[in-house]
């Protein structure tokens, strides 16, 4: 599945890492969210959508479906 992180908006709260630890990580230097892998398997979709829902900065977008 396709995931986009808006790095300019991310506030480094880390909720995405708690919800989907196999998908998201935080940069060491400023806590901004990054994707762990280029390709995210489809079975992560519910967790990624949950991460997008709780993201305080609305910085995570997924392809529709």
């Amino acid at each position: 599945m396709k995931i986009t992180i808006d790095e300019g908006k991310c506030v480094g709260a880390g909720q995405c890492v708690l919800v989907a630890p196999d998908v998201f990580d935080q940069r060491d230097e400023d806590g901004v969210a990054v994707l762990l892998t280029e390709e995210t398997p489809e079975d992560e979709r519910p967790r990624v959508q949950e991460a997008a829902r709780v993201c305080p900065a609305a910085a995570i977008a997924t392809d529709g479906r």
Binding site: V11, G12, G14, V17, L18, R27, D28, D30, G31
Partner: peptide, 15 residues
């Protein structure tokens, strides 16, 4: 705010 917050955020990441 975000510039200042990011200077601190590295110390409070999940990792």
């Amino acid at each position: 705010h975000l510039t200042q917050r990011r200077r601190l955020a590295r110390h409070f990441t999940v990792k």
